[in-house]
């Protein structure tokens, strides 16, 4: 309530933005990749909450299923498989950190400065139901049929590629020390 009074912003937005940014920072600064993945999943949850607030229920659900459910679990799976943990996490130089902060900060400042007064240009025309499964589905299978089908090609290609890289050649060149660990 207090924040709503100060900023004039809805409490939901504030809370979830806070969670989003905090978790995102945790993802990029944490040394242990496993924790990073978990934090990233939290980030995705809070972004889904944003979607719900923005009336995009369909995407909120898809986001949870695809990102949090599938992609992140894949990440987790690979991390566990490769047995990567804090000890073998590579370190980078301190100066490089500084440069990165500088670069990202500059981008942020430029974006913020350039978008300072841009919101007036967006006309507000919130239609209630565009984010619902029914209406989105309708558009997806009429107007956006071509890209929808083409994403099938994409998946096929990705699948073939992943299998190609993952499988081991039969008449193989000797791979370096491959006895202990057995990925895929």
């Amino acid at each position: 309530m207090l924040s709503a009074l100060i900023f004039g912003l809805p409490i939901g937005f504030l809370v979830f933005s806070f969670i989003t940014i905090l978790c995102a920072l945790y993802v990029v600064t944490n040394d242990n990749p496993v924790f990073s993945v978990l934090a990233l999943i939290l980030t995705f949850f809070s972004i889904s909450a944003h979607y719900v607030m923005l009336n995009a229920q369909f995407l909120a659900v898809v986001n949870l299923i695809v990102y949090a459910g599938a992609i992140m679990v894949l990440f987790l799976f690979v991390l566990m498989l490769l047995n990567l943990s804090k000890e073998n996490e590579p370190k980078v130089k301190y100066g490089w950190h500084f440069a990165a902060v500088f670069a990202a900060g500059m981008l942020l400042i430029i974006l913020a400065a350039s978008l300072h007064k841009s919101s007036e240009q967006i006309m507000r025309n919130p239609a209630q139901d565009i984010g619902m499964v029914k209406s989105l589905g309708k558009v997806l299978f009429t107007d956006y049929l071509v890209p929808f089908e083409l994403s099938g090609i994409l998946f096929l290609a990705a699948m073939v590629g992943a299998v190609l890289l993952g499988k081991r050649d039969k008449n193989n060149e000797t791979e370096a020390g491959d006895s202990s660990n057995n990925p895929s």
Partner: peptide
């Protein structure tokens, strides 16, 4: 003729290429 298609095209072009670039596995 739509940015979505451009995006899909870029990805469809590059994803197989990532694999091709790494096709000499060892």
């Amino acid at each position: 003729s739509n940015l979505i298609m451009l995006f899909l095209g870029i990805e469809c072009l590059s994803i197989p290429l990532y694999v091709l670039a790494g096709s000499r596995k060892s």
